[in-house]
């Protein structure tokens, strides 16, 4: 309820009366410091080991390289009849390298991936899968905006390009927990698919990442992602594309980050990719970091 003018005046007086007046006082002195000696320089802030304390953007001058192995397994279910489905599997082993650097308040990143092994059901074996880059800028202490580009050339028959603009914020829930919320918009451009016309699929999505610090160096995180996709040029003859012009995608993941050294993390986890054709993906990797 808003205060009346009289009430506001009374409130102001009460604050003036009750609130303690600032008292000028000498700064506390260090008994070990000699007279005239300059105070010791404040040590630079250290990059935190705890996952829940890490910022969204690398500090300027920091460099991070992260080689990762990905193992994907797809359970392909056929329904020759409603009672007796048949199950067959398809698996791939991919490798990726992600490099990031903090420059003048920005974080610049680049990534490439290569297919190492693949089963007969998938055509991604020992090939360059794709790559891309991103730039992130942080603002208002706990927010960041990322612009990301990725080109996928996993198959000689398909060229696909992804553009994303991501707004993220990280909130500490307690000394041992944090949550990262992000919203994103973007476009998937399918340029070349077996003589079909190029298509664009726009997406609006949001996600939540939950971070829990088990002990001083081990952090766990679970994530959930929900996206709305709309295909602008639906091609009903293309059986590999979604059957309708709009669909909803969701991904989930569990991962750990073990800070085994101030400059080295061991990471691992698995993701349930349920956007498009569904599959399960495991990953394990290292993160090497140098922070000035």
């Amino acid at each position: 309820m808003p205060l009346s003018p009289r009430g506001a005046l009374a409130f102001s007086i009460a604050v003036l009366v009750v609130a303690p007046r600032p008292v000028a006082s000498a700064p506390p002195t260090d008994p070990d410091r000699l007279p005239g000696e300059d105070p010791p320089a404040k040590p630079p802030p250290r990059y935190p080991l705890a996952l829940v304390e890490r910022p969204l953007v690398l500090p300027s001058g920091a460099v991070q390289a992260m080689p990762v192995l990905y193992f994907s397994h797809r359970s392909i279910i056929d329904y020759p009849s409603s009672y007796y489905p048949s199950v067959r599997g398809a698996a791939t082993l991919d490798s990726g390298m992600n490099a990031r650097v903090g420059v003048a308040g920005l974080e610049l990143g680049g990534h490439v991936s290569f297919g190492l092994l693949g089963s007969a059901h998938l055509d991604s074996t020992n090939t360059f899968q794709g790559g891309g880059g991103d730039v992130t800028v942080g603002f208002a202490r706990s927010f960041a905006i990322t612009a990301l580009f990725h080109a996928s050339v996993a198959s000689p028959r398909i060229d696909r390009y992804l553009l994303r603009l991501v707004l993220s914020t990280k909130r500490r829930l307690s000394s041992r927990s944090a949550v990262v919320v992000h919203a994103r918009i973007g476009d998937n451009h399918l340029r070349n698919f077996e003589m079909h016309a190029p298509t664009d699929t726009v997406t609006v999505a949001a996600g939540v990442t939950v971070q829990a610090q088990v002990n001083a160096f081990l952090g766990l995180q679970g994530r959930a992602y929900f996206g709305y996709y709309r295909q602008l040029q639906p091609d009903q003859q293309n059986e590999s594309l979604p059957r309708s012009a709009t669909y909803v995608g969701q991904d989930y993941g569990i991962a750990f980050v073990a800070a085994v050294h101030p400059a080295v993390d061991i990471i691992g986890g698995f993701d349930l990719i349920a956007t498009g054709s569904a599959f399960l993906q495991y990953h394990v990797g290292l993160a090497f970091r140098r922070v000035p």
Binding site: I77, P85, F226, Q250, L272, I273, A274, A278, F279, L280
Partner: peptide
Amino acid sequence: QLGRSAGIGDAIS
């Protein structure tokens, strides 16, 4: 609570 299936046939949310 939100959930979605994956890894088998058609997706159920």
